[in-house]
Design a protein around this nucleic acid. Structure first.
Lengths: 210, 210
DNA sequence: TAGATTGTTAATCGATTAACAATC
DNA sequence: TAGATTGTTAATCGATTAACAATC
């Protein structure tokens, strides 16, 4: 097992491996070679073996990989067994969509709290989570150490809320607002889900693919 | 102007350029050099000039770039002026969130139709769009050529609906379901928004950043 | 055993960065 | 004019692919 810095390209493939292995497991597949895993994911066998080699030796010569155990290894690598928690800020349409439809547990997370400013939603319960007033955020984080803050708020309040989250000791921000959060605190990870960037990339690709 | 294949890395930066230039324009900035644009986006000046050189010569020696005109050039490159249209399939929480909160026009798109199976929502109007029964999809696409289909449906129906979209002549699929659509039709672009991949990458990064 | 397939090292390919002549 | 900054070519860096000895 090497102990090098893992490149972003590799990190972005890990969830895809996990997802594919889950499908294979559900389909009852017991073993798989890097060759056939690669074919099903549009990757080369070399790349898969190279990627996995950053983290350990999970295969067996002449056999390949056991689907279930490789999936478990990748879950461990991804930190899915660390009991991460998440607090959601902004129970608008998107926030509600995540609360009701997104399976946090399938990514190893537990959604533990939700906050909003609107008195009309505060106090209500969605997906078993009571919506708290945003004023309680600081106190909540102090009492309940939380791994990730989810920003599904209007962009105008995103910077100030991300400050509060960081002061409250979160480790990462899952940012759904359409701005670049300029976080300077070292060690804080920001993961952006920029819908418009995604749609614009699609726009480019369909426009040139003529 | 070169006429090479534009790499994916470059394509993914174009929307970020556009977004940053919009911010600069709104802030009243008239001109910017590759150096200062790079500093504000965490890129090197070289990279920015290299990226832009794939598409043309937009700057002026000794001056830099005019913010407004560079933004317009990038909009053009991204296909934002092509009158692209989108039809949304699946008016659940996420679909509704997109319909009500996402500004399609700011990405050069017009949301022209929405479909669902649920009789409880069919016929209702959201964000000025009447929800149609999914049975009308084929006929609608035949009558109204559409650039992009948006999949905000349960994963089980995603493959069959993507087939229908392709038969209906769409050019791209904006896929919010948590599966890899295995599209074989050449020329069809699939752009995935995989929430769980994104959260798992964040999970990895906060887990190792200790 | 023979065939299959791993993990790793070396070779190649592609993307980023540096350098610089051109020129506004 | 002198200084600033471009677009592009060359150099470097990093990621992907190929090759292969090891071995199940």
């Amino acid at each position: 097992m090497k102990k090098e810095k893992v490149s972003n390209a590799v990190i972005r493939r890990l969830p895809r491996y996990y997802r594919r292995l889950t499908e294979l497991l559900n389909a009852g597949t017991v073993r798989i070679s890097s060759k056939s895993l690669g074919e099903s994911m549009n990757l080369t066998a070399s790349q898969i073996r190279q990627d996995l080699s950053y983290f350990g030796e999970f295969g067996q010569q002449g056999y390949g990989y056991n689907v279930e155990s490789l999936r478990n290894e990748i879950a461990e690598i991804l930190g899915m067994n660390q009991g991460h928690t998440a607090a959601l800020l902004g129970v608008g349409n998107l926030g509600r969509a995540l609360m009701e439809n997104f399976h946090f547990d399938q990514s190893g997370f537990r959604l533990t709290a939700a906050f909003d400013v609107d008195p009309a939603v505060v106090g209500h319960e969605i997906a078993g989570i009571k919506i708290r007033p945003i004023e309680e955020l600081d106190e909540y984080l102090k009492q309940n150490p939380t791994s990730v803050g989810i920003l599904t708020v209007p962009r105008a309040v995103a910077p100030s809320l991300s400050e509060k989250l960081i002061e409250g000791g979160i480790k990462g921000i899952w940012n759904f607002t359409n701005i670049e959060l300029n976080i300077t605190t070292p060690g804080i990870i920001v993961e952006n889900v920029h819908f418009s960037d995604s749609l614009l990339a699609l726009s480019y690709l369909i426009s040139e693919a003529i």
